[in-house]
Write a protein that binds this DNA or RNA. Sequence first.
DNA 1: TATGTATTCAACCGATTGGTTATCAACTGA
DNA 2: TCAGTTGATAACCAATCGGTTGAATACATA
Lengths: 115, 115
Amino acid sequence: MPSDRLSSTLFALSDPTRRGILARLAIGDATVTELAEPYEMSLAAVSKHLKVLETAGLISRGREAQWRPCRLEAAPLQDVFEWLESYERFWDRSLDSLADYLKVMQNRGPGNKDD
Amino acid sequence: MPSDRLSSTLFALSDPTRRGILARLAIGDATVTELAEPYEMSLAAVSKHLKVLETAGLISRGREAQWRPCRLEAAPLQDVFEWLESYERFWDRSLDSLADYLKVMQNRGPGNKDD
DNA sequence: TATGTATTCAACCGATTGGTTATCAACTGA
DNA sequence: TCAGTTGATAACCAATCGGTTGAATACATA
């Protein structure tokens, strides 16, 4: 795991299994066995993925008897979001919103066929 | 490098050197030597980082004599952005933008002192 | 107490990472 | 043609990754 926070967050997110786990946790809290259910890998492998997510601060874990319920923690995601925002000007904004699109169409005037 | 596009993008972004290279390219196109200048590692190491960024589609490269100018390609960043947006509801929106803050202030009307 | 269930830990494995140095290739210009 | 510059490639290395299996831990219940 890389040293700085943003790096470890992005690294944790770079695995499809871990993103799948986060997607499941977006529905609601879940135990390790519940999280592991969609995957063919061993429970120990999922446990490792959870540790990566936990050290990245992307999940937190409770204690209920022998269960360790996992919860999504989105703060690191916001860091990524904010980092990304400084690059927002580099991608095509015209597809971002219908409003932008309509603005373009209005400026072109009627009768224009070359779309 | 992971198989799917989003994974390889996030993985490429998970290294601070590679993010630094992108930040430099956000200023403008640059050659490999220019990109390598801030780092103490060898040119070959930077070349490897560039290959990771290129296979992730985050940069493109031209040809000018013996130079291979690099250019930022932000399309994969937009994919990450869109993936992140589905998690936006999990973090606190109230600090997201000054616009939101001002909207709240306007709705409150003048003369309100309890900030 | 013994048993079953949930989860982690430890050791191991092959593949990959991020770095090195040395070499090769492409191009410029004297 | 030959030297200099730019960059990529190859071979190598220690460390890490993502997975495995097997044992250990923690708890509930009979």
